[in-house]
Design a protein around this nucleic acid. Structure first.
Length: 837
RNA sequence: GCGAGAGUGGCGAAACUGGCAGACGCACCAGACUUAGGAUCUGGCGCCGCAAGGCUUAGGGGUUCGAGUCCCCUCUCUCGCACCA
């Protein structure tokens, strides 16, 4: 236990509240006494309070950051007061495009810039009084960290979960880099807003889709807010259906212009061609009146008839040029007929095959069976090109030939199949099963599950990231860098700007990428791409407890003790990607035998967003709150408490410049109360009652992040304690100092010591309420007549209905409305009385 | 379009399983103390009304003794996804 000498002797002249002085004093003391650095190995009740680590921007800490961190800090401090050993580490997610672009803009190397930004962040965080264990601080840009990021990559590679493929990737012409699908927002680059182009490059991918089912199923058991789970479920996007094979009817035609021009002899195609489609509605097969291929579908050339070859070629060329923006924003559906027909395996009839860009190559098989009667997109397309629309599903009110009207009929519940041969009359669900069974028997259908989730592309053709630890050797092929050779250091190069070539800046440095093959000793070439920032943050929580260890990524004993993370708090903007990627990484490491758990975060809560005066904060609007200024003027304790007071933590709030004065007034009163408190005489019973109610309320609110109402409750107690200018008793003030401590830690330490505390207030535990004092023995009973409140009368809590009625009728305000014998009396004991006349 | 959430005084917001709507705070008004001060303290503060009283939780309907809360319809806003078959 640390030694905390009392700050003031009784009889000293009280000094006025000077936040700057006492905050400096206690920050220094926490540091020198190691107050915030628990012994991780010895902790009896470990509580890992994790906050999402930030990108250390050059602008310094944003109020949004501080709002997030303070909320986590209060949670952590509260858990400590509950007797847990709380580990609250901090770090910096400092690799990535963001830092690199800024470095390019100001013309300073990121390796110089980042340490400065980090120093500034640390300075600001220290001033904010967070309970951070600075001994475990980390930055993802530190070779002692990214050595293990590379190690994580190698584990994925060893598990067969990292692979390289040539893929059409999203290319941002402004940032000059490949973007993950997740970094493309509506066809625009998430960072700079430039329209994204498609490029074909060799990329490293992680097989996250192998884990789709597990990532989905595990969600049910997690203590996360429902909205976050929903977002993850939607992102994974599971859909169950079937792949159905359609035979293309033979068309006499040349095998294709590509082969012809290559000099291969021209032949008539007589081979039966098949098209596989994915559908979630195999029950509607009889309504499939045409097929649609994506313009990039490999069979386009094969099936197109000579007559249509020119128009198809034109359409495909147009579609490939069109960027994603116009493709996604244009409402009109376009397409072109191939001249070919396929056989509907349900009806046996020929149906035309079309090409249209509303069918995406990336999803399913890149081909669909179009059922315009029961799919909105197909309906729209069929209308556009005058294709037949058939009803095969009918609701209870429909006959077999009820017209479909102006839109597709997409309902399924309580509906049955019609115009579907022997499947007529079956419910949609039964029809699905029956039709798939039937087609499967004919080898033309397979039940299939599809996911929206794509494999995770982790290659970046950029400089500021961990080099991917792979080598290419002419004789040995693709070779992983041996673990003992890690880290593959990112070289200090000056020409780190990306260019238009699609090659990483590292590829311009032969002296770096030419190396020796660890297998054969011959010449090898390093992978010149770096990995995605999301990989850095996918495992950082594992590193914190062991951040001082050089020999292992994470110590197994410490990991067993401290992980999974007890409580994780962060922004909702990471509700999908970061959380999904870290869950995936954890599962892989578990499967590889490095971990004993597979879900990294037992509990996750997302905090809200701060706006200012009703508007979003942005540099261009010039309404960004600079935490330094507010801390200078009001003190960190007031600033922290105000941030938590301005709205519900999980929803965010509106920062109003004058609002902080109310919180500061509250702390001023607390200061005076503690200094003026009397130790003689007795505690007022009414105040004591309010105190115990407040202890309960704050203790209930804080764990559920109800910070704003907890603060309101403490203010109420303050008002009670000081009402009528009375001088509070020491025993009335001391518990309040404890309640306030998670929010305003410095003033709490100071006043705790003024009131005679000899340890840190954070080692003093949490006050205990007396349940008998929490319940009032009297209450103001509202009396309603016909549901309208006519009076409120002070009565004993345990008053009976008869007594309550008698008391109520003595009240003139009530009696005058009870003009006749009551028809009914509704009495809720301890709550209210309603007289119905 | 789909998914998630929200709509309450001048403002930020409270309200447990349906039970006094507006706690707490800002702003504002009045007063006290004062060497007129961005200090402190006291009181007031949803709307209409002199009052009795009436009205009031985006709008409309419903269930109920009783609805901000539950159900149905409509409108508005925020966020996420966006032709995923």
């Amino acid at each position: 236990m640390t030694d905390f000498a009392p700050s003031q002797n009784p009889g000293d002249t009280p000094v006025s509240y000077d936040p700057a002085a006492i905050e400096r004093k206690w920050q220094a003391r926490w540091d020198s006494q190691g107050t915030n650095s628990p012994d991780l190995a010895k902790a009896a009740q470990p509580y890992y309070a994790l906050m999402m680590f930030p990108y250390p921007s050059a602008e310094g800490l944003h109020v949004g950051n501080l709002f997030a961190f303070t909320g986590c800090d209060i949670h952590g401090r509260f858990q400590r007061l509950q007797g847990h050993t709380v580990f609250e580490p901090f770090g910096y997610d400092a690799f990535g495009i963001h830092s690199e672009n800024y470095a390019i803009k100001v013309g300073v190397h990121p390796a110089e810039l980042i340490p400065k930004n980090i120093d500034n962040f640390r300075r600001q965080l220290l001033r904010a009084g967070l309970m951070i264990d600075w001994r475990h601080e980390l930055s993802t840009t530190d070779p002692s960290y990214y050595k293990w990021t590379q190690w994580v990559f190698l584990q994925l590679y060893k598990q067969g979960l990292a692979y390289k493929k040539k893929a059409a990737v999203n290319w941002c012409p402004f940032d000059k880099t490949v973007l993950a699908n997740e970094q493309v927002q509506g066809g625009l680059c998430e960072r700079c807003g430039t329209a994204v182009e498609q490029r074909l490059l060799e990329q490293w991918f992680f097989r996250i889709t192998d884990y789709a089912e597990r990532l989905l199923n595990n969600l049910d058991g997690l203590d996360w807010s429902e909205s976050t789970k929903t977002a993850q479920r939607n992102w994974i996007g599971k859909s169950e259906g079937a792949e159905i094979t359609f035979a293309v009817q033979d068309v006499l035609e040349f095998a294709g212009s590509a082969t012809a021009s290559a000099g291969v002899s021209q032949e008539f195609s007589v081979l039966p061609t098949e098209i596989r489609v994915f559908t979630t509605r195999p029950d509607t097969i009889f309504g499939a009146t045409y097929l649609v291929l994506s313009p990039e579908h490999p069979l386009v050339d094969t099936i197109t008839s000579d007559d249509e070859r020119d128009s198809v070629a034109a359409y495909v060329a147009l579609a490939s040029k069109q960027d994603l923006v116009s493709r996604k924003t244009s409402k009109e559906k376009t397409g072109v007929f191939t001249g070919a027909y396929a056989t509907n395996p349900g009806t046996g009839h020929p149906i035309p095959i079309w090409i249209a860009d509303y069918v995406l190559m990336e999803y399913g098989t890149g081909a669909i069976m179009a059922v315009p009667g029961h799919d909105e997109r197909d309906f729209e397309f069929a209308r556009q090109y005058d294709l037949p629309i058939v009803r095969v599903v009918a609701g209870p009110a429909h006959t077999d030939h009820s017209p479909l009207g102006d839109e597709a009929f997409t309902e399924t519940v309580g509906c049955h199949l019609v115009n579907s041969g022997r499947f007529n009359g079956l419910s949609v669900a039964d029809g699905k099963a029956a039709i798939v069974t039937e087609l499967a028997a004919r080898h033309s259908a397979t039940p299939v599950v599809n996911y929206r989730l794509h494999d995770w592309c982790i290659s970046r053709q950029r400089y500021w990231g961990p080099p991917i630890p792979m080598l290419y050797c002419d004789s040995c092929g693709t070779v992983p860098v041996p673990e003992e050779q890690l880290p593959v250091l990112l070289p200090q190069i000056e020409d780190f700007k990306p260019d238009d070539s699609g090659i990483s800046p590292l590829a311009r440095h032969e002296e770096w990428y030419i190396t020796k093959c660890p297998t054969c000793g011959g010449e090898a070439r390093r992978e010149t791409d770096v990995s995605d920032t999301f990989l850095d943050s996918a495992w950082y929580f594992l590193r914190y407890p062991s951040s001082d260890r050089d020999d292992v990524p994470f110590d197994s004993e410490l990991t067993k003790k401290w992980l999974p993370v007890t409580s994780y708090i962060g922004g909702n903007e990471h509700a999908v990607l970061h959380l999904l990627y870290s869950r995936f990484t954890t599962m892989v490491l578990k499967d590889a035998g490095f971990l004993e758990f597979e879900e990294p975060y037992v509990k996750f809560r997302a905090h809200g967003l701060i706006v200012r005066e009703g508007a979003k904060m942005s540099k261009s609007k010039g309404n960004v709150v600079n935490p330094d200024e507010y801390i200078n003027e009001w003190g960190a304790d007031s600033f922290r408490t105000y941030l938590m007071f301005l709205g519900p933590y999980e929803e965010g709030g509106d920062f109003r410049d004058k609002g902080i004065s109310g919180v500061r007034r509250f702390l001023d009163r607390l200061w005076r109360s503690a200094h003026d408190a009397r130790s003689d005489g007795a505690v007022d019973p009414g105040v004591a009652r309010k105190l115990h109610q407040t202890i309960k309320k704050v203790g209930d609110d804080v764990p559920r992040l109800g910070y704003n109402t907890a603060i309101a409750a403490m203010m109420e107690y303050m008002n009670t304690m000081r009402s009528g200018e009375r001088t509070p008793h020491v025993d009335e003030v001391r518990p309040l100092v404890q309640l306030v401590s998670p929010f305003a830690p410095h003033i709490a330490e100071e006043l705790w010591s003024v009131l005679g505390g000899t340890t840190s207030v954070f080692d003093a535990g949490w006050p205990v309420f007396d349940p008998s004092l929490v319940v009032e023995d009297q209450f103001e009973m509202p009396v309603q007549v016909n549901g309208k409140r006519r009076a409120a009368i002070m009565v004993p809590k345990d008053i009976t209905q008869a007594e309550a009625f008698a008391v109520a009728m003595k009240d003139v305000g009530v009696a005058k409305f009870v003009v006749s014998e009551p028809k009914k009396i509704v009495f809720v004991p301890g709550r209210m009385l309603n007289i119905v006349v």
